[in-house]
Design a protein around this nucleic acid. Sequence first.
DNA 1: TCGGTTTTGGAGTTGTTAGTCCAATCTACA
DNA 2: TGTAGATTGGACTAACAACTCCAAAACCGA
Lengths: 216, 216
Amino acid sequence: MKTYSAERKLTPKGLATRERIVEAAAQLVHERGVAGTTTEEVRYAAGVSSSQLYHYFKDKMLLVRAVIEYQTDAIIGAQAEFLDNLDNMESMRRWRDRLVRISRGAGCAGGCPLGSLSSEIAEVFPELRIDLNRGFTRWEGGIRSGLRAMHARGELRKDADPDRLATALLAAVQGGLLLTQIRRNTKPLESAIDAMLDYIESLTRVRAKGTVRVGH
Amino acid sequence: MKTYSAERKLTPKGLATRERIVEAAAQLVHERGVAGTTTEEVRYAAGVSSSQLYHYFKDKMLLVRAVIEYQTDAIIGAQAEFLDNLDNMESMRRWRDRLVRISRGAGCAGGCPLGSLSSEIAEVFPELRIDLNRGFTRWEGGIRSGLRAMHARGELRKDADPDRLATALLAAVQGGLLLTQIRRNTKPLESAIDAMLDYIESLTRVRAKGTVRVGH
DNA sequence: TCGGTTTTGGAGTTGTTAGTCCAATCTACA
DNA sequence: TGTAGATTGGACTAACAACTCCAAAACCGA
């Protein structure tokens, strides 16, 4: 999933340069947004010349597209160990802790690298919504497979819909990160995810027809 | 809450012009984002000259600040009838339907006028985070007071935290709107809010110590 | 009516930034 | 080793966009 469209031949050297540009761009875009990042800053940060940048990316939009792909990989990568095992409450709680810790580590700044990007460019570069959606869908897929497994094993009530729960959980993460970014405090993120996980937990361990145990 | 800082004297005429500028700016910013909206477009849409715009707003950032205030009022206004009565499940479900209908009516475009704005400018204009937060806090306050009322009346379990639930519900709305914007489909918004409301409902109607009824 | 203040017109300025161009230099591979 | 193609340097351009400026006009209270 490295090269996007049919790139011309790229020598290892060229590929490294390209990667350097994307990395620099991703970092800057996360810090200041797309509009707040100039190609000159990217060039400086990556240590490349103007002709290099435009040699590898026809225009800024295509660079942004590469950044989307890069951030998607980064997100999935950073959560891989968790996303592969979100099929029980304990794993989900640990995953939640990891997200909170990442956010806190960033000083609650920047929000979700994919979410912030999405808000900013969804209407400006409509073509890129496909790429953004691909990113979210990959992420959601990781969550969903765990919930589906729980459902299949009967650990989730029959009438629970793991797919919808996965979407809702991802939404809680996104909304939580947004509020956390604005407030510079991880509480909103914690409250949002915790509520959703408590809900999911309430759908497990069925005790009697129509009643379930809830709580911590 | 109309004028922000200590504005100089504004005649009715001047105030109307100012309002026209803010309205035009709010609309454009919602459609294309802050960076995607030029002062010239605002001028044209509002039918004012350059000197007028800069007569009422020292710079673009202060215009954006006025837009934040305007959108906050618009959001609260559009949901006023609901926000004042979110103290039972039926009201909350109706409120949910309203949000979904608003989103669908906009073709799922633009997302939340406040949320999109926040993502875009939180790091670019850090000074404005205060204003954004004020908006979210007002919104959250409307949700919270309903949940607090339910809690006080004993319709929510004692160990439920209405304040955290309010934050989580707002986060679900924000995250849901983001995914809905990207996917151009209201399902994510529906799934996110429904899950959170189902959870809240599961915290009502306590049946026995430690067990509650859940579901639809 | 008068004087001060607010409001408006619109040309102009200044800085920025995405994107171009062409020649020079490397690199892979036959 | 030769050469076509890939990579790089860096000056340049053309457009754009935020913001300024100086009067002129409208307004308002006395």
